[in-house]
Design a protein around this nucleic acid. Structure first.
Lengths: 130, 130
DNA sequence: TTACATAATGTTATAATATAACAATAACTA
DNA sequence: TAGTTATTGTTATATTATAACATTATGTAA
C-alpha cells in the first residue's frame, strides 16, 4: 500500500497524535486523548490503528502493546521492522539499517525458507540510562 | 538462570502442558487445561509463566500472546529468540541458527550500541500452507 | 446522475489478556 | 530456629481487543 494515500478523518486524528508523540502510545491512552475530537469508543481507535499499521504509517511495538509512527521514509520496510527498546525508560527507537534489513530479508531457515516479513525488538539500556 | 533448576509444583504442571503441546498455548487455554490439577485462577498461571520465561524454559510469542517451550538445548539463547510464524495455520517454530544469533548479538546500531537481548518474529507461509 | 460497491463511522456490549492487593504456606539459609 | 525469600491461594479489578449491527460517506462504472 502507498504511504502517500489520504487518511480518513479518524485515521488522521489518531496518526497526528502518534506522530507528534515522543513515545509509543497505547490504544486507551490514544482514546483518552482524542475524546475531545469526537472519538468516543475503543473500536474507533482500534480500527484506525489497524488501517494505519496496514498502510505502514505506524508500527505496533508488540512487547509493549503500543504504537509509534514510522520513521523510515522508504515504504518497502513497513513489513520489515526493527526497534530498540530501553528497559528502564521505555524509550523506543526504530532502527533503519540497510545491512540489517538485507540480512533478515535474505535470511533462510534450515528448510531454505525465506520470510519477507519480520519484526525484531532489541532490548537494552539507552544512552541516558546506561 | 539455570535451566536445570527444579520447578515448583505449579511451574511443573504448566511447563509440562506447554512442553507437550504442538502449538503455542495462550494463558487462558492453559488455565482451562490445568483446572483439574487444582490451578484455579489466572494469576496462578501468569505467575508460573513469568518464572518459566525468566528461566528460559518457555518463550512468549509476543505477536500472538502465546507461549511455547524452548527447543534450544543451549541456555545462552534464552535472551536471544527467533521464531517463524505461519500466517495461515499459525504454526510457530523456534529458529536456532548460530549465524543469525551471532549476527544479531553482534549487531550495533548507528550509535554503536549493542543489545544482548532480542526477540525476532518472522512471518510467512509454512511448507504445508504454501 | 444514479445505482452499486466499498470504506469508514458510530454505538453498545462483551471477550480476552493481565495485574493489584492481601493473606497464608513452603523452602531456603545463616 | 529465626529470619528471609519464593511460592501459593484468593478475590477483585485493570487493561487490551473484538463481535455485531446500523448508518453514513466515498469511489466507480453504466
Amino acid at each position: 500500500m502507498d504511504k502517500q494515500q489520504i487518511l480518513s478523518k479518524n485515521q488522521q486524528i489518531i496518526f497526528d497524535l502518534i506522530d507528534k508523540s515522543s513515545e509509543p502510545l497505547k490504544a486507551y491512552t490514544i482514546l483518552f486523548n482524542v475524546q475531545k475530537k469526537g472519538i468516543k469508543a475503543p473500536l474507533q481507535v482500534y480500527r484506525a490503528l489497524d488501517k494505519l499499521v496496514e498502510m505502514g504509517k505506524i508500527h505496533k511495538i508488540e512487547s509493549r502493546n503500543a504504537f509509534i509512527a514510522c520513521h523510515n521514509s522508504s515504504c518497502q520496510v513497513s513489513k520489515a521492522t526493527a526497534f530498540s527498546i530501553c528497559e528502564i525508560c521505555e524509550k523506543v527507537t526504530e532502527i533503519s539499517s540497510v545491512s540489517l534489513s538485507k540480512y533478515l530479508t535474505n535470511f533462510k531457515d534450515k528448510d531454505g525458507m525465506k520470510y519477507s516479513k519480520y519484526n525484531l525488538e532489541f532490548f537494552g539500556l539507552c544512552k541516558k540510562c546506561r
